[in-house]
């Protein structure tokens, strides 16, 4: 099953950032001899995906700004006003606002983690896992 609404909101940006962090993580693993060729291939595939998504998103924004700005869209005023409005929609909604919200959600989760203590596992579970 797929939970939520894939591709929308802050989830997309979250996964892009995680993918871009993978080479750093893997370099750390390499330093502690916990890396492998297979893992680097996985890292390369996902970092490539993330970069591809970022480039296509940037191209989409660029095309929108220049195509629709030039058309003086109804309700958006003059040409320069239209370009500015679309620039705002594209850049603010997709990146700046989403990054702030994403950071706030992650921070809130960590604060909650500190405020709410972990529940203790039954002894039988702990001994089984440690066995």
């Amino acid at each position: 099953m797929i939970a939520g609404v894939p591709g929308t909101g802050i989830g997309g940006i979250y996964y892009i950032l995680l993918a871009l962090m993978m080479p750093v993580q893997e370099t750390c693993r390499l330093c502690t001899h916990r890396s492998s060729i297979e893992r680097w291939m996985q890292v390369a595939a996902q970092t490539g995906n993330a970069l591809g998504i970022l480039i296509t998103a940037w191209l989409t924004g660029w095309l929108l700004i220049h195509t629709f700005g030039a058309l003086r869209i109804h309700g958006l005023g003059t040409h320069s006003q239209a370009v500015k409005t679309i620039e705002n929609i594209v850049s603010v909604s997709t990146f700046h606002l989403a990054l702030v919200v994403l950071g706030s959600v992650i921070l809130s989760v960590h604060i909650l983690r500190l405020l709410i203590p972990a529940r203790k596992l039954p002894k039988s579970t702990i001994s089984r896992v440690n066995a």
Binding site: A3, G4, V5, T8, G9, I10, G11, Y14, V101, L102, V105, I106, S108, V109, R113
Partner: peptide
């Protein structure tokens, strides 16, 4: 924890 929180956030606010 972050994955679930973000999925929940998007489930509500993106919707």
């Amino acid at each position: 924890r972050s994955t679930v929180a973000i999925a929940m956030w998007d489930a509500i606010f993106a919707s």
